[in-house]
Amino acid sequence: MNQTKIKDNLFRFLLLIIASLSIVAVLLICFFLFYNGLPAIFKIGPANFLFGMQWNPEKDVYGIFPMIVASLYVTAGSLLFGVPIGLFTAVFLSKYCGKRLHAFIKPVVDLLAGIPSIIFGFFGLSVIVPMVQSFFHTNGKGILTASLLLGIMILPTIISISENALNALPESYYEGALGLGATKEQAVFKTMIPAASSGIFTAIVLALGRSIGETMAVVMVAGNAAVMPKSVLSMVRTLTSNIILEMGYASGLHREALIGTGVVLFVFILIINFVLLLFKKSYE
């Protein structure tokens, strides 16, 4: 009897240690990122770093404001494309398409989630860039192109989480609405979607996180000019692009400034997660 108890506790302890590994990973990442990035930010001056308009490593001028703006634009643009398409797809999958069509579409959407971002980058480069090129007569790279590409990349996230949220609703909502003489469209758009809003919001926030953190695909289609964008067709360099473009050869303060860029990105991600947490709490 006592021996089983000891074994139980031992096993519980073992699992606890294994479960702690991801927490340790997060803490270590936090620590090293801030430890390596913050000194540079203070050396450059937080205001100069965050709001500086110029990024010129040769003259040791490190202002990342154009990149913060670029990241926000590209992310917002991707949501503009991805959220409506993803949400309507989820509604279709959950409420309109039959079982057979569902069995075909769902795996394809899941496959979309599994495609490596470098492949998305190729797709953007060989399909979206020429399209934008011929339509707007620019060189084809920029905010619009990156937004379109990211919009496609976040579709699986939005679709599967929204669809799960819709499917998790009790059937009685749907029947109740129809029983009152609502049409199917009314039942879906005025009852089911509002009722699933917490799940849909989660989907959007996770997609936002994916979008702002995406690197490989964006660097291939955004144009990467570290200047303030003037229009949606402007070439831009996002925070993530900035790091990957220069990390290979940077040293000294330049290298630290890139890590500082990572710190800013990380803070954005923390804020997003915090908002999600607050929202979930308030919803309960």
Partner: peptide, 14 residues
């Protein structure tokens, strides 16, 4: 369904 309304077994308020 407007003319013939329905109340279900379990309350199903939205």
């Amino acid at each position: 369904r407007k003319r013939i309304g329905m109340v279900f077994q379990k309350p199903n308020l939205f």
